[in-house]
Amino acid sequence: MKSNFKDFFSERINGTKDWLEDVGKLDETVTKTHSEIRHTEHLINTLFEVNTPKKEKHVSSSFPISYYISAGICIVVILVVLIATVCSLPEFGVVNSQMKEVSDRYVQSGMKETGAVNAVAGMILDYRAFDTLGESFVLFTALNCVWILLRTNRSSVERYFPLTEDNILVQAAKVSVPVILVYGIYVIINGHISPGGGFSGGAILGAGLILFSEAFGDEIAGKFVTEKRFKVICSAALLFYCLSKAYSFYVGANHLDSIISTGTPGRIISAGLILPLDIAVGIIVCLNMYGIYCMFKKGRV
């Protein structure tokens, strides 16, 4: 029995050795042919001067020393000038008498005129609402530019290790994603009563959606946020923001009375248009963040 095994294996090993020798010979022939082809190519190139080898362009790995010196001097001068500027302004923590005129009214009459307990929310969504309108459109512009650059239809995602197989992430996400989403909704809805608002709540919701997509995979997230739903909801939120602010500005500029009342401060349904605008801004920020993330990850929403 033993000798049979020994013969069997030595046959196999000899056979493999012969096979390896043949492969080695084949490899030699291939290498020789390859070098002959290169030699002929080089001859043709020199004879007919096709594809002259480019001059070796030396990419210097650092700037010339004069650039560093001049940049250093510039930076030191700028630092000294900036510190001198800042030191001649009012001190930190001291009341600045020039700013009192504007900020006092926001705090004093903010609750009465806008109905918002949070004076900052009242300021950005009522007194200075045009800036916030522009800001939402800055995010929209960024999403458009990223769409132009990164939108492809490629079907595969180049990943070394798909995160859906990481058990720690999946189990942690099962617990934390619902909490994050609910917390985001809480921050948005309570934006005018407590610290928070549309922008911070939208960022929290966007982060929750990104975690959901990473932990559970593209297909499940794609069923929840499809491209058509994404476009429709994003455009609807932006249109609602534009039209409601258009109504509010038109009514204010022409000294008409607005039909929207400010309600009693401190309740959730109050502060006029601030709550719906907070919700619209939250949706816009959340979807834009998620959209930009999807463009980077897989090239489409």
Partner: peptide, 28 residues
């Protein structure tokens, strides 16, 4: 600048304007 107990005396609160400016700046 979150009004507490309906007390709107401006000497209790910080200036709310820079918070709005920073908000826009962070988004940009």
């Amino acid at each position: 600048p979150i009004i507490i107990n309906g007390n709107t005396d401006p000497s209790l609160y910080v200036n709310p304007v820079p918070a709005g400016l920073v908000l826009t700046g962070i988004v940009v």
